[in-house]
Nucleic acid binder design. Structure first.
Lengths: 140, 140
DNA sequence: GAGAGCAGGTCTAATATATAGACCTTGGTG
DNA sequence: CACCAAGGTCTATATATTAGACCTGCTCTC
């Protein structure tokens, strides 16, 4: 446990108050978190985990993303080397997205998070319900 | 490895095409990811990992968040039972935020992610540079 | 005892990001 | 000819985020 947590220790060093002097927002953690911690990136990685998929398959799998954001998210992931894009000269052309090795390597850490989400889901919901009940009770 | 990945398998079942019929956006994973996968939540959790902190300490630690978003992020995390809020009747009153047990339990999975970020940072940057070079070469 | 300062916020207006949904292209089909 | 792919792009609108002024009590300095 404390092995993994040392990563957070290391991180917090980037965050110390006196880091004002250094470049304002450039710890690697922030940088990476800003990428994969956006609204859709993790979801895309996970959706591509089992097998490569085409643009419209991805759109069907995550039905509430707009095409524009889908395109943009995929471009950004490609730019960062997490996925690759392959165009097949069929008519009409089809485009396949697949995890690059770098993206593959993200799968395991991400799976731990998913696992946590799955197991703690009910706790979170309970807490949420409790909080809402409490705040709708007191106010008047 | 495949142990953790089974979580992703499980997830992808929620995503299957024919899930159109079921509630549109309600797999637990989406739900949790939408919470902790926003712009600031993970950062807050990590910043609170080492010890409890007060409002203004948090603001100093993450200097590019606005007060408004700081307040809102903290409320949301409190609502979901990840952190707790303690008001001390000093003058002026001070407010301390600390990880709740649920938040603590998130630390380990998150640490794996941080660790990944730290180790793969340079790969990501290299990929980014390569991509940008390629796309500024071809266009004309 | 007037003025400044601090902690933890809230409020408003401006800016940045995301969304829905129309449209484009290049063939093939009925 | 009209229409349907697939993989996008474009535009107008809705939503999120920001900066920064302001508020409330109380205390400290002069």
């Amino acid at each position: 446990m404390s092995t993994a947590l040392s990563a957070i220790e290391r991180f917090s060093r980037y965050q110390s108050d006196d880091a004002q002097s250094v470049a304002p927002v450039h710890c690697p953690v922030r940088d990476v978190l800003d990428r994969i911690g956006d609204k859709w990136s993790m979801l895309m990685i996970m959706t591509l985990a089992t097998r490569p998929k085409r643009f419209s398959e991805l759109h069907r799998a995550v039905r509430d993303i707009s095409k524009r954001m889908l395109t943009q998210t995929l471009r950004d992931l490609e730019r960062d080397g997490l996925i690759t894009r392959h165009v097949f000269p069929t008519k009409p052309p089809s485009v396949e997205y697949r995890l690059a090795p770098l993206g593959q390597s993200l799968l395991e850490p991400m799976a731990n998070l998913i696992d946590w989400a799955d197991r703690r889901y009910s706790d979170i919901h309970a807490a949420r319900a409790r909080f809402d009940a409490a705040s709708s009770d007191v106010p008047p």
